[in-house]
Each structure stands twice: as C-alpha cells, then as structure tokens.
Simulated scan of single mutants.
Amino acid sequence: MNATAPSSAAQAQQEIVEEFAFFSDWTERYQYLIDLGKQLPAFPEELKIEEYRVHGCQSMVWLVPSGDADNLHFQATSDSAIVSGLIALVLRVYSDRSARDIVATEPRYIEAIGLAKHLSPTRSNGLAAMLAKIKAYAAAALKA
C-alpha cells in the first residue's frame, strides 16, 4: 500500500485492482481485506453516534465527513473485520478528493476485483449504502 495518496480516484481504483490481482483465490482476498481494515486509523468513540451511522449495513458502520467541496475527508469504522476492509477501499477511492470528483466517480473497482460476486447480499447492500452516503455528503458540499 502506498504511503502517499493516489493522485486521482481513477488511479486509486487501478491500484486496488492491481493489488487484488496478486491473489489467486477469494480466501486470500478476504484475508487481504481484513488486513486492510486493521490498518484503518483509530476512530474516536465520541463519533460513534446515530448521526454518522450508515443504515443498510448488517454490521455497525460510522462514516464522518469533514472538509469542504474542494477537499472532502472521510473517517469511518465498523465492528466487522471484512466491512472494515471494504471501508479501507472506499476511503482510498473517495476520501481527500473534491466533491465534484466524488460525485463523478463510479466504484468500478468493485466489479473489477470480483467483489460484487463474492459479497453476501447484506454486505453488498451495506457497501451500496456507504457509497450512497459518501456521494450524498459530496452533493451537499457542492450545494453549500
């Protein structure tokens, strides 16, 4: 994983696709997802409030936006190891980007790495809810 953020959301997605291509099966890919989730920055307990909760996820997920339309930053966490890994991927693509980029970026990596086929329906719904919430925050920032 790069220490520096990729210059664009498209580049971040490409890097994710390349990383997952190293693994031959989904057992390894799930383990990698779990490892990515363990690398998420510590999440402040006081931010685990209803306002930041992502509904539609089977597990508990909190997503906190900060910044403005020029640069939106997201912090997120989950009580599930695999969902934490999904969060790590979502943040790589969408955090620290302009609201315009966030709204315009479709999560192509999900299909490209085969996640769409390998997530349970509840995890897929949760991932969709997370992405919708990020895009809603970005759309609101654009209107502000």
Rank of each mutant, 00 (worst) to 15 (best):
A69P: 07
W62M: 07
A42F: 02
R29I: 08
L119E: 13
G37R: 00
I134L: 02
Y137A: 00
L115K: 06
K48D: 03
K117M: 11
L40S: 02
P121V: 14
Y94D: 04
A9I: 09
A129I: 07
I82W: 00
K143C: 05
G37T: 08
I87W: 00
K133M: 14
L89H: 10
I110T: 03
E15R: 15
A140E: 13
C57Q: 08
F23Y: 15
I134S: 05
V83I: 08
M130E: 13
K48M: 13
R123C: 02
A140D: 12
P41C: 08
I82M: 03
L36E: 15
A128N: 13
L33D: 10
A5C: 07
E50A: 14
K38W: 06
E18P: 02
R92W: 00
A132Y: 03
I113S: 04
D96G: 02
R92T: 11
Y94M: 05
I82K: 05
K143F: 03
L72C: 04
L33N: 07
Y32C: 15
I34M: 05
A136V: 02
S78V: 03
Y94G: 01
D79T: 14
Q31N: 09
Q14K: 09
A3R: 01
D79V: 13
A99M: 07
G114L: 04
Q75Y: 10
R53Y: 06
S80M: 01
P44A: 14
L119T: 15
R123S: 08
S84Q: 14
L63I: 08
Q13N: 00
V90Q: 01
E15P: 06
T122I: 12
L36S: 12
S120C: 14
Q13D: 01
V17H: 01
V93W: 00
I102Q: 06
D25M: 13
L131S: 04
R123V: 07
A3Y: 02
Y30M: 08
R29T: 15
R123W: 05
A116G: 12
E106F: 00
L86H: 02
R108P: 00
S7Y: 09
Y137T: 09
A140K: 13
S24P: 11
